[in-house]
């Protein structure tokens, strides 16, 4: 699954630490999600989407192999 979290962070001028603080997870978790090593739960995906004021579909996209 692809995601555009790092793009959204750049748009909103947020660091990984800022985002992790905003949604209540560790910075390592944000890093893992951005590098596609960890797929977040629905709750966390919705929290990230709400932080960037976008829909979940704009943040996460399924790939061929998913």
């Amino acid at each position: 699954m692809k995601n555009t979290i790092h793009v959204q962070r750049a748009i909103h001028k947020m660091t990984q630490a800022d985002l992790s603080e905003a949604i209540g997870v560790s910075r390592q978790t944000i890093n893992s999600i951005e590098k596609n090593r960890y797929v977040p739960s629905t709750v966390l995906a919705l929290k990230i989407a709400r932080t960037f004021k976008v829909s979940v579909e704009e943040l996460f996209e399924l790939e061929e192999q998913d």
Binding site: G24, V25, Q28, Y38, S41
Partner: peptide, 9 residues
């Protein structure tokens, strides 16, 4: 130190 859903997973 900072428990979240990833660490529980």
């Amino acid at each position: 130190k900072f428990p979240d859903e990833r660490l529980l997973n």
